[in-house]
Design a protein around this nucleic acid. Sequence first.
DNA 1: CATCGAAGGTGCCTCAAGGC
DNA 2: GCCTTGAGGCACCTTCGATG
Length: 236
Amino acid sequence: MLWNEETEKHFFREALKSFASPEQLFYNLQSGYYAYIPKDFDSEGQTLQSRNSLIGQFTEKWCKQIFSPIAEEFGLYAINGVVCEEIALTKSSSADLAFCTKNTITQKAEDIKLIFEVKMSIVSNYKFEQPDAVNLIGDYKSHKGNPSLLRSDSMLKAIGKSINIRVSGSNANTIPIIILGNSPITSTYSKKVDFLKSAGVIQGFYSLNPNPTKSDFIFESPEKGFITITDVKELK
DNA sequence: CATCGAAGGTGCCTCAAGGC
DNA sequence: GCCTTGAGGCACCTTCGATG
């Protein structure tokens, strides 16, 4: 299964059940608990920070799970947090996910076959009702937050990290880099992702969320530098 | 045990472009 | 001309790992 609203509800339910308080996961507004600030709502001075790390770790593990069977078919391991000093993957800035020939965190460059950078977050908006109900109240166009690849910051971070790998030495030249998101991109990056692909810097930006909204969205870029994955077969 | 730095993803502010 | 919309950039807070 690719990313959908159930995935997001699952994240909230599991986090609430095992370790997180509602205040860590949702905005606590006067009218209730919200995943994002709905448009036209007052944020009441809040900027939620406590969810960031949690959703970051969740999405990186989620990507590992969905890619593991594919890696195995190629005789490779899908590993989170891969370190390889010679291509700028340090302990503090490791590869979110990578396909490797050996099942270890620290790798030699020649054993890394594919690098993923994960840039995913909660996409739609939800309202939490005590004790454990999480209900969809709108897609990403209905709230103030820009999820995943729709944020310029996220695109710049992904591009910057990829360039950092590319300029670290000749060892990094032949390893493909894929950016994984769960939202579309903005129109202003459509041509840029195609140029990054043709220039050989980043081999693709993939959205693993087939239905981010019921209204219009950018499904793919002209040269397929950005694509929306619609089933697991296509992903392979 | 304390400190520091980096990465995680959020809302706010500004400004330019487009619609009327 | 004014108003709306959206992209870009910034500051923010939390967490975690490395280092002293």
